[in-house]
């Protein structure tokens, strides 16, 4: 089918990643008591944003 699936998956992961990054940077730090003091939103948001952007890039390059 003509829709490259990497495009929607990559964009979704990237958008979620950016939202998590935003929450990690600007959000209240007290919420990280639950996650053992680790700002998991910041770390994992970064990972997802990069992965998502990579997928979108790969899909764009081929077409």
């Amino acid at each position: 089918m003509g829709l490259d699936l990497r495009l929607p998956i990559g964009s979704l992961l990237a958008i979620i990643g950016v939202i998590l990054l935003g929450q990690g940077i600007f959000g209240d730090a007290a919420i990280y008591q639950r996650s053992l003091g680790i700002n998991i939103n910041l770390i994992w948001g970064g990972v997802l944003a990069v992965t998502g952007a990579g997928l979108v890039f790969a899909a764009r390059r081929r077409t």
Binding site: L20, Q23, G24, G27, R34, S35, L36, I40, N41, W44
Partner: peptide, 11 residues
């Protein structure tokens, strides 16, 4: 609910 803060919880 135990480990995830708002944000990751949504994911």
């Amino acid at each position: 609910g135990h480990y995830f803060p708002p944000g990751m919880l949504g994911l």
